[in-house]
Each structure stands twice: as structure tokens, then as C-alpha cells.
């Protein structure tokens, strides 16, 4: 049972930071199906920097992990510029742009992972082996019956992400920038006539979205196998989008949905082990998050209120 909580949390939290990224973009009026691509590309940059730094800083160094997170954020943010450029300046169809960015991201990371490996150690491997992140257990809280598992064997990045989520909640709901951003997604004309900068705000929102997705991606890489490969992201970006939809574009509720996803995933795995089924059967349990997503979508999609202006390019000349 504690394993369910521990593993569930380490899946839910990176998912949450990506969902927060998606919320930022969509609340600003840019439909974002490109989370999967942002996460992959950001994580690629993070992992590349980690692989380059590990010999310098020593294999066990934990500092590498934090530098990798920063690099992943920068990488994801830079890659997000493509989506921003296509959607905001080129006024391309935002759904197409999202899909294009995902496909291109997968192709870029696949090619350059093997190219980088060839350059670094001469073999065209399709993965970067990362260091192992230390884990820690919160004394006291971890002993609480039932939910104690939440506080056992935590990754340090989980704390960092939680702090980030709180910060981005504050940025969206309490600051001037956040107020402008949300107005952008509902009625950009209102913001424009009030003297706000619609295009700039959207650009920043999409870049934030990319940076947060990159952080989510590198954290997944550390928590899943301590290695990065372009193929480890099994639609997690889309899961984050689904979480955002159930969460009704609200950071608080989205966090709850991410937890449900995380526990469904880890619960399935533990159930498989507990039932004593052969490892072949794990495939069936791995389907659980996706099936759960479909069910939740069936029950909750109709009541949703996406940001009104999301998906529409904004044209200053049009009134």
C-alpha cells in the first residue's frame, strides 16, 4: 500500500507540473496539444546536459539533477517558441500546430539522442543513462498510518515542483500578469483596449508552458528508470491535457486529478504484483490510466468551460 502512494506521487507530480503548463497556455488563449513535444524536447536538453556534466561533477553528484532540471526548463521553453510562433504570429491552426510540434519533437530527439551518443561515446545508443536521484523520507509524517506512504522515499524534485506549482498558482490568480493572462484567453480585445499586450502575454504563457513541461519530462526520466530515451513518454503529455480538462482549467482541481491518475497507475502495478500474476499481465494493468482517462472524459467533458478565446488567433485589426 505504501508503494502505491510513493510511486503514485512520483508519477502524479511531474504530470501536475505539465498540466499547469498546459493551463497557462490555454488560459492565455493558445490551445496546447504540444505538451508531449515540449516535455520530450525539454527532457532531452536536460538529459544531454546531465550526461555532459556527470563526468565533470562526479557520477553520484546530486547537483547534476538540479542543473538538468534547469536545462530542461530552458530547452522546453525554447522549443515552445515554435508553437508560439506558429499559433500567435503565423495564425496557424492551433491543433495542427500542436500535433506538428509533437511529431517534430519526437523526430528531433530520436535523431539527436543517437547523434549525441555517437559523438560522446561512439555508440549510436537511443538513450542517456542518468544518475540515480537520492530519495528521502519525511520523519514523523511518514509514520501516519495509510497515507504515510506519501511521505516515504520522496524525490527532492517533488518538493521543488510543489513549490513551483504554488508559485504559478500565485502568478496566475494574484498578480497583474496573471490577470492579463486570463483576460487574454477570455476576451483578448478587452485586454488590448485596456492597454495590455495580448501577443506578448501569450508568448510568455506558451514559453512557461514549455518550460514546465520540460521540467516534468526530466523528472519522469529520473523517476522511471534513471535514464532518458525519447520513447519513455507514453502519451504523458496527453494525460496532462486530459487532467487539465477534468480539472476544468483550474490548478487546484487539476492537482487532484493528477493524484488520481498517479494512484491508478501505481495501484494497477501493485495489484498485478499482489495478485501474483505473471509479469506478462502487467500490460493489462498499464492500460488503467488510459482507460480511466477515457471514462473520466465520458463523464466530465460535457460540463467543461474551456477559455472562450482558446484556439482563435488574435488579430488586432479585427473588431
Amino acid at each position: 500500500m505504501t508503494k502505491v502512494f510513493t510511486d503514485g506521487l512520483s508519477f502524479a507530480i511531474p504530470l501536475l507540473i505539465m498540466a499547469v503548463g498546459a493551463i497557462y497556455s490555454e488560459k492565455s488563449g493558445v490551445t496546447n496539444l504540444a505538451i508531449e513535444g515540449f516535455q520530450g524536447f525539454g527532457a532531452f536538453i536536460g538529459a544531454l546536459i546531465a550526461v555532459l556534466l556527470m563526468p565533470v561533477l562526479g557520477n553520484g553528484s546530486q547537483a547534476v539533477i538540479y542543473i538538468a532540471m534547469l536545462a530542461a526548463a530552458v530547452g522546453g521553453g525554447l522549443y515552445a517558441c515554435i508553437h508560439a510562433l506558429l499559433c500567435i504570429n503565423f495564425k496557424a491552426n492551433q491543433v495542427i500546430s500542436g500535433v506538428v510540434v509533437n511529431i517534430l519533437g519526437l523526430a528531433l530527439t530520436t535523431f539527436f539522442t543517437s547523434a549525441a551518443n555517437t559523438a560522446i561515446n561512439g555508440t549510436a545508443s537511443n538513450k542517456f543513462v542518468l544518475g540515480v536521484s537520492t530519495r528521502f523520507t519525511v520523519p514523523g509524517l511518514s509514520r501516519i498510518p495509510w497515507v504515510g506512504g506519501l511521505f516515504q522515499n520522496m524525490y527532492p524534485f517533488e518538493i521543488i515542483i510543489i513549490v513551483l506549482v504554488v508559485f504559478f498558482w500565485y502568478l496566475m490568480y494574484r498578480t497583474r500578469f496573471g490577470m492579463h493572462l486570463r483576460a487574454c484567453g477570455e476576451n483578448p480585445q478587452a485586454l488590448d483596449t485596456a492597454g495590455g499586450k495580448v501577443e506578448l502575454t501569450r508568448w510568455i504563457a506558451v514559453i512557461i508552458s514549455g518550460a514546465l513541461s520540460g521540467i516534468g519530462g526530466i523528472c519522469f526520466a529520473y523517476s522511471i528508470l534513471s535514464q532518458y530515451s525519447p520513447s519513455i513518454y507514453m502519451g504523458y503529455g496527453y494525460l496532462a491535457i486530459a487532467a487539465m480538462i477534468f480539472g476544468n482549467w483550474n490548478i487546484g482541481t487539476t492537482a487532484l486529478v493528477c493524484l488520481i491518475f498517479g494512484f491508478a497507475k501505481s495501484g494497477g502495478q501493485q495489484l498485478c504484483i499482489a495478485a501474483g500474476l505473471p509479469s506478462n499481465y502487467s500490460d493489462l494493468f498499464l492500460m488503467l490510466p488510459y482507460i480511466l482517462t477515457m471514462l473520466l472524459l465520458i463523464f466530465f467533458s460535457k460540463k467543461n468551460h474551456p477559455p472562450k478565446a482558446a484556439g482563435e488567433a488574435w488579430d488586432k485589426g479585427r473588431r
Partner: peptide, 13 residues
């Protein structure tokens, strides 16, 4: 349900 999300979910299933 947005078809982009549902098709991806169904893909993995």
C-alpha cells in the same frame, strides 16, 4: 471529447 486526446488514449489501450 476532443478526438486528439481520445485517439491517443485509445492508441495506448
Amino acid at each position: 471529447i476532443h478526438e486528439v486526446v481520445s485517439t491517443i488514449m485509445v492508441n495506448y489501450i
